[in-house]
C-alpha cells in the first residue's frame, strides 16, 4: 500500500492508544498491529520506520521494538 496510507493507518491506531489513561501506548499500538495486520503490512511498516519513519507518530516509532 502507499506509504501515506500506511502512515495514516498506523497513526490512527497511535492516536487512540495515546488517549488511554495508562502510559503504555507503544506496547498497545504494537499489540494491536500484531493482532490485526498481516505480516506483509507489518514488514512494510518496520521497513518504513527503519528508513526514518517520516510522518509517523512517536508512539508508532516506539512500537517498532515490539512488532
Amino acid at each position: 500500500m502507499s506509504p501515506e496510507k500506511l502512515v495514516r493507518m498506523a497513526n490512527q491506531i497511535a492516536t487512540f492508544f495515546k488517549t488511554q489513561p495508562k502510559e503504555d501506548a507503544p506496547a498497545r499500538v504494537a499489540a494491536h498491529i500484531n493482532d490485526y495486520w498481516e505480516p506483509r503490512m507489518r514488514a512494510q511498516l518496520r521497513d518504513y520506520v527503519d528508513q526514518g519513519g517520516e510522518g509517523l507518530d512517536r508512539a508508532v516509532m516506539d512500537a517498532r521494538a515490539f512488532l
Binding site: M1, D35, Y36, W37, E38
Partner: peptide, 18 residues
C-alpha cells in the same frame, strides 16, 4: 498463526502485486 489480509488490505496487496 499470523492474521491474514482484510478486504482493503487484499486490494492494496493486489495493487502491490503480492
Amino acid at each position: 498463526p499470523e492474521p491474514g489480509l482484510r478486504i482493503p488490505n487484499m486490494l492494496d496487496a493486489a495493487v502491490d502485486g503480492t
